[in-house]
């Protein structure tokens, strides 16, 4: 019972974090067709912005939305500076990898310069601990497990039920036609980046609430988010959501039975096998080209 509870709890928690990270990455991939390698540092920057706002004695209930709005602006700026000018170039996938990596280095070193290397922590969403099925858990983590599905549902509704969301998906499916029917493609690209960055910031607040923050804290979540989107397929945001929870559980099981060291190796082994058998991901029907 104890083991099962621990695995279920660990899987749900990791899965929630990965889902919030991965949908942002998938959103950019599906709309613009590029991979944002600065997604991890956006998460880190979100946590630092939240810390700074908290330090200014702003109540935490205001800090969370304010951070997300500020980071949405950062995402928009990032898109306008290092992605949009490159659109239409033949080797855009590769060039965007390098520009977003450079932007990541820029933000990471800038953060180090502004806030220093000392570890920081932001307040938990909800303070306190609880015993659940014989496992001691923090309420912060429980809160994350419970709000994440609502956030994902909200995003899903936005993409499938609102005009703007449908426009985003239209751009994802056929950019030329979207342009022809009069959609403002540039604005939609910016919007995709803004939403993605806001979600990354939220993941940063989640992570910064129970673990010490550092300027390099984004590297590992970025890697996991990459695995999740590959695993789930890149054609929609539903695939990555399922994959995030699946990988969360896989990690929880592996680290319980094989230890923390072997978990990443096993994860990559599974990833490579998945790609060899089903390059388009396991939850994906038809992919946005494999190029």
């Amino acid at each position: 019972m104890d083991a099962a509870a621990q695995i279920i709890f660990g899987g749900l928690f990791q899965g929630s974090l990965y889902a919030v990270m991965a949908v942002g990455l998938a959103l950019i991939w599906t709309t613009i067709g590029v991979f944002n390698f600065s997604h991890g540092v956006l998460m880190m920057l979100g946590a630092y912005v939240a810390w700074q706002l908290t330090a200014l004695a702003i109540p935490f209930s205001v800090v969370v939305p304010l951070t997300m709005i500020l980071m949405a602006g950062v995402g928009w700026l990032l898109q306008a500076s290092v992605v949009r000018p490159l659109i239409g170039r033949p080797n855009i996938v590769l060039v965007v990898v390098i520009t977003t990596l450079a932007a990541a280095s820029l933000i990471e070193n800038g953060t180090l310069e502004v806030w220093g290397p000392r570890s920081k922590q932001i307040p938990a969403l909800v303070d306190g601990n609880a015993m659940l099925l014989g496992v001691g858990v923090s309420l912060h983590q429980i809160t994350i497990i419970f709000i994440t599905p609502f956030i994902l549902l909200a995003l899903w509704l936005f993409l499938n039920r609102t005009r703007t969301g449908l426009a985003l998906r239209a751009v994802a499916q056929n950019e030329d036609s979207a342009l022809l029917v009069g959609l403002n493609v540039k604005m939609l690209y910016g919007l995709a980046f803004a939403i993605s960055a806001a979600l990354a910031a939220l993941a940063g607040i989640f992570l910064g609430g129970y673990r010490f923050m550092s300027p390099v804290m984004g590297a590992d979540p970025l890697l996991k988010a990459l695995i999740v989107v590959v695993f789930g397929g890149l054609s929609s945001i539903n695939g990555p959501i399922f994959a995030a929870y699946l990988i969360g559980f896989f990690e929880a099981v592996c680290s319980y039975y094989f230890g923390l060291y072997w978990t990443p190796a096993l994860l990559f082994a599974v990833l490579i096998i998945t790609l060899m058998v089903r390059p388009e991901g396991i939850f994906s029907g038809k992919s946005r080209g494999l190029a």
Partner: peptide
């Protein structure tokens, strides 16, 4: 061998991390 573009980036990136973890 069967992959293209971004998928190659992801697998080879994963390979590098795997070697490091080992």
């Amino acid at each position: 061998l069967r992959l293209k573009g971004i998928y190659i980036i992801l697998v080879t990136f994963g390979f590098a991390q795997l070697v490091m973890q080992l």
